[in-house]
Every structure is written in structure tokens, then in C-alpha cells.
């Protein structure tokens, strides 16, 4: 045993401190220690994207980040996406466009898509499909997910000053 490490991070605009073992992943700590269950585990080896979070502005698979590596990082999870005024345009588009069925993949897709639209609000279908290739969905066939991202992108472009 090597004891536990104290880690200081910012999660969803809140300062968070936690203790963890070196072998624990960020995903594990988010879920089992911080009870932020919105971040999902589908594979624990980087292949499904269900555990996607935004860390220092980039999407990462939180199953492939050690919790100790989160020291000093800024992290956004699905719990930090909705605004006080209501849902994020992506969440709204997923909801209205029936872009979820079972919904287990949805948090990962919303975060991945947000990171894309924040950089490239005019991403087209090909770009969206490429960007989201690390997020597996078994229910939808991706059609309505891609359409929802296109729609949210359009709305975000229109809202932007």
C-alpha cells in the first residue's frame, strides 16, 4: 500500500479536494468518491467515450486519467453543463431531436459535442461524425445525435453576438 494522495481540482466551477489511491482513475473518483454519477463507465479502456469529461478545455476519457493527475486541473462534467437559465442548447437539441434512447451514452456525447461546438460552431456532418467517433452509441445509429449537434451548432451561432 502506498497510501493516499490529496488532490485539489476545480470541478464544475467549484473547488474540490479529494483523497485517492494512485491506481484510482479520475472516473472512479468522480463516481465513487464524489458521487458525480453523470459520468458513465462503458468500457474502462478508452473505447466508448461514456466517461468523457472536459479537462483544461480538452475532452478526455476520464477512465484513462489517473485521479492524481487531476491535481490543479479544471474539469467539467455533465453536471456542470446546464446553465441556471435552463438546459444548454445541446441538451435541448438532444431532448427535442430524440437523440437519446437508453441515455447511457448521452453525457459523453453532450460533453464531446460541446467541446467541438465551442471551437467550431459551424462543424458540418462529416466533421461531427469524425469528432464523435470516440463515443459509442448502440441505440440510435447516430443519425439523430448528429442532427442534434448540427441543430445546436446552428442555434449557438445565431445566439452568439
Amino acid at each position: 500500500m502506498t497510501g493516499r494522495t490529496h488532490v485539489h481540482t476545480s470541478i464544475n466551477d467549484t473547488d474540490v479536494d479529494f483523497l485517492c489511491e494512485s491506481r484510482q482513475s479520475l472516473l472512479e473518483v468522480l463516481r465513487d468518491v464524489l458521487w458525480l454519477f453523470g459520468t458513465k463507465e462503458g468500457c474502462n479502456d478508452g473505447n466508448c467515450g461514456a466517461c468523457t469529461v472536459i479537462m483544461d478545455g480538452r475532452i478526455v476519457d476520464s477512465c484513462l486519467v489517473l485521479a492524481v493527475e487531476a491535481e490543479g486541473k479544471t474539469i467539467t462534467t455533465i453536471e456542470g453543463i446546464a446553465q441556471a437559465e435552463g438546459l444548454h442548447p445541446l441538451q435541448q437539441a438532444f431532448l427535442e431531436g430524440d437523440a437519446l434512447q437508453c441515455g447511457i451514452c448521452t453525457p459523453g456525447f453532450v460533453l464531446a459535442a460541446k467541446a467541438l461546438l465551442d471551437r467550431e460552431p459551424d462543424a458540418d456532418e462529416t466533421r461531427i461524425r469524425h469528432w464523435l467517433a470516440g463515443n459509442l452509441c448502440r441505440c440510435t445509429g447516430y443519425d439523430k445525435i448528429v442532427r442534434a449537434v448540427l441543430k445546436a451548432g446552428k442555434e449557438m451561432r445565431e445566439e452568439a453576438p
Binding site: 463516481r31 465513487d32 458521487w35 454519477f37
Partner: peptide, 23 residues
């Protein structure tokens, strides 16, 4: 009609509790 699904908000905000989402 294409009404909005009842469990939709929970699922797009990460609040829905799936099998492992319990402690």
C-alpha cells in the same frame, strides 16, 4: 406527436441513475 420524453431532462443532465450509479 413528437412529444418530449418524460425522462429526457434527467438523461441529458446526467441525473438519471443507471445500474452502477448508486452508493
Amino acid at each position: 406527436t413528437r412529444t418530449t420524453r418524460h425522462d429526457g431532462v434527467d438523461k441529458v443532465t446526467g441525473r438519471a441513475r443507471f445500474g452502477a450509479d448508486i452508493s
